[in-house]
Amino acid sequence: MCLGIPGRITEMTDDLGLAVGTVDFGGVRREVCLEYVADEVRVGDYVVVHVGFAISKVDEEEAQRTFRILREMSELDDLDWLAEVADAAEAVEVPQPGAGS
């Protein structure tokens, strides 16, 4: 019921005082009421649409930021993993001389 899907605004018009427009969802286009986001959106922006109403403008910077964090986390994990392997290899082959003794 509360499903909301992101789509891109391709057209904005006015229907008897109501801000409406066309939103493209990966190729499928639909008429959408833009009244609740009218002040902040332009053609080309992404909006989250629920039952024919845009309820928010997708914040592209925030979306990128989340992804950057997730990716960095993923890269860090990779590095951890590499470091572990390297540590293990070192532990066997080249023990650290004098560490902490």
Partner: peptide
């Protein structure tokens, strides 16, 4: 007209 706060504005 059913729904949570998400649907109320529509």
């Amino acid at each position: 007209a059913v729904g949570f706060e998400t649907t109320a504005p529509a």
